[in-house]
Design a protein around this nucleic acid. Sequence first.
DNA 1: CGGGTTATTGATGGTGTTCAAGGGGTGTGG
DNA 2: CCACACCCCTTGAACACCATCAATAACCCG
Lengths: 260, 260
Amino acid sequence: MSPADMTTQESGRKALDLPGTIQLCGSPDGCESLCDKCQVRLLAVCAALDEDELKELEAIAEHCVVGARHTLFQEGDAARHVYSVTSGTLRLQRDIDDGRRQVVGFALPGDFLGLSLESSFGFGADALTPVTACRFERTRFTELVARKPELQRKLHQTASRKLAFAEDHMVVLGRRKAEERVAIFLLRWSERLQVLRGPSPTLPLPMGRQDIADYLGLTIETVSRTISRFTRDRIILVVPDGVRVLDRSKLIQSANATHS
Amino acid sequence: MSPADMTTQESGRKALDLPGTIQLCGSPDGCESLCDKCQVRLLAVCAALDEDELKELEAIAEHCVVGARHTLFQEGDAARHVYSVTSGTLRLQRDIDDGRRQVVGFALPGDFLGLSLESSFGFGADALTPVTACRFERTRFTELVARKPELQRKLHQTASRKLAFAEDHMVVLGRRKAEERVAIFLLRWSERLQVLRGPSPTLPLPMGRQDIADYLGLTIETVSRTISRFTRDRIILVVPDGVRVLDRSKLIQSANATHS
DNA sequence: CGGGTTATTGATGGTGTTCAAGGGGTGTGG
DNA sequence: CCACACCCCTTGAACACCATCAATAACCCG
């Protein structure tokens, strides 16, 4: 199917499949293209490298920008490049042909896409906000990794962390009630953002309700209702593009609401 | 809680938490302790090594045997060792304190446990059948990996595959109906066994119904009912300790039964 | 202001859970 | 060798949670 000629979808669900308009920054025209100045220098896989090695990495890096609601790559695409996110938020998803969708994660600055170094992507990635990323040709990156054991090790460590996180999420999807799922999502998301931006009572939610639903294995209505209930119970407050956590301990309670 | 003094559990669910009675084979007393003769030589991570390197690995390997229904290690245990399974089947699970359980996978010969090389296990591992495995002290193994880039690469590749598989399973847990889940489970399990043992219409199921339920995010009753329905529809036939697949194409249909 | 998208809320119903009872296999001890 | 206990699995009936359907509200951007 051609991804271009669908303007109004059957359900409003697949709203983000605009063509992947990716802009490259060739030279200092606004994009910081130096690793020294990179915001996520110490978070990303690059943290494994010393000064000289970083130069090598920088030599094969391209900096790219993707607008909000645009696609970075689609599930099954040939993985010509791998990416290190430097700003913005992406939604990572797998689709079932009949329209159902599972969001397998959200990518934030410091995250690496294409970890597996395999020839095609196992999930699609759409920008939820404007996104900037470092892009590497996969074959070149693989070749560099082969020469840098420490980078290889870091890549493995990152993949292992993601695997552990995926197993966590399996528990959520397999065994948690709706209320628990939403509470756990809010807590984990806030912890993730806290690492990046420091503590804040206000929690930005760049993803829509449908994205949260597809992440948690629920419907948009159930997510909305649960958030409304939390609001009624003074656990959270809905603000534009996010929520404010009013009572974290009650939220933790909701995350462990025992069944039966 | 002490894992020893519970003989009849509250629900019959946690039937396998016997103390982890692991036997070691010191010398040629029945255990094949040579990699040359290893059945999974080409499947396991060891496949990354050449003759000399394999000798090094062999030098730090211990061979161990775990009886059916015994625990290899528990979630949260200090990971003193990492394991390469050489025969048998294990159940890998995470537990929620209130008794709910999510089976995150089943391990078969060739599988590696402790991939992350972190200091504790993120899931528990129980033997469903008698199991044999190669065991390595984690610190020594990590040190070896640091010296063998090819082994590091193989480890990363294995972790990446598991991550992709975990994402597959998220779709199952988040978006599939009960009938689809069971059908997909049977198909994937049969494909996995086919790689190991070659094609066969008879599919051994060393795990119990409760294990399948905990893997698929369902109850034992739903799994049982679904299998009964498949049997009525002549899709499968229940045989001792497994099923026989009578009509694979119908099973594939059931795996894609559209919702609505 | 108007069109379109996204979020909320309500009413209803279905899929899977829960509760309960019975069947079938296996191992053990009389 | 049978009786009995103990699992595990199966099956039935009632219920609950969440999905579905539908309408409205809020929002954004033109």
